[in-house]
């Protein structure tokens, strides 16, 4: 359960201030699937980073469960990220020197488990995204869709409560786009995740339980 009240985020760009988010009030219930739409530069990524405890708002409060993540120190934010939140990025952000399995494994590096247990979990996560036969491939040897599947496996291998996806299909062709959205939707359903997906694609947004639009830092529910 996210609760944002009066959240603003201001960036300094050279000599001017940019209000990426202005007095956002928002609640996201556990297990909800939310699609966020809006023009480029509207503040979608900024909101997702605040939800993902990657950054703190300039003002206002954000609570996740009963924790105020808008005022936690970096060392506490990283704990929350490592246990509760999974990220999926538009550009996949896999580590180019590591193979698919290792890219999933690195998400577990903070957990005190044996390497065989870690590999087992990573293999299971790759199986759940349909990549059992590609575990030893480097990112450069995988298609865009396959890379995004690896990234999704990496996000889910920790069993997070929340999955945040910032334009996960933005770099994919139409066919793959649907596959990835099917996958995300299936996982959301299966695992009872809270899923927040930023997307430009209205067809994708329509799959969500709830649609939000962010424009010039202001948020509203889409009708």
């Amino acid at each position: 359960m996210y609760e944002l009240s009066n959240v603003s985020k201001t960036y300094k760009q050279r000599n001017r201030l940019v209000e990426a988010l202005q007095s956002v009030d928002l609640q996201i219930a556990d297990g909800q699937m939310v699609a966020i739409q809006g023009p480029t530069g509207g503040g979608k990524s900024t909101l997702l980073q605040l939800l993902g405890a990657l950054d703190r708002p300039s003002s206002g409060t954000i609570t996740l469960g009963d924790v105020d993540i808008s005022s936690l120190p970096d060392s506490k934010l990283v704990e929350i990220r490592s246990h509760k939140i999974g990220f999926v990025f538009q550009t996949f952000n896999l580590i180019p020197t590591l193979n698919a399995l290792e890219n999933v494994e690195i998400a577990l590096q903070g957990e005190k488990i044996s390497s065989s247990a870690r590999i087992e979990r990573a293999e299971a996560a790759l199986a759940s995204v349909g990549l059992s036969d590609r575990t030893r491939h480097l990112p450069s040897e995988l298609s865009g869709g396959q890379q995004q599947r690896v990234a999704i496996a990496r996000a889910l291998v920790k069993n997070p409560e929340i999955l945040l996806a910032d334009e996960p299909t933005g770099n994919l062709d139409e066919q793959t786009r649907d596959d990835i959205m099917d996958l995300l939707e299936g996982l959301w359903r299966e695992k009872g995740l809270t899923l927040v997906v930023v997307t430009h694609d209205s067809a994708i947004a329509k799959r969500a339980q709830r649609r939000l639009v962010i424009q010039a830092g202001k948020i509203r529910e889409a009708s």
């Binding site: 990657l54 990283v78 490592s82 246990h83 990220f87 580590i95 998400a107 590096q109 903070g110 920790k158």
Partner: peptide
Amino acid sequence: TREFGTLKAIGWKNRR
């Protein structure tokens, strides 16, 4: 940079 940003996003500590 983005690689380290990603690692931080998925929960890697600075020390790590």
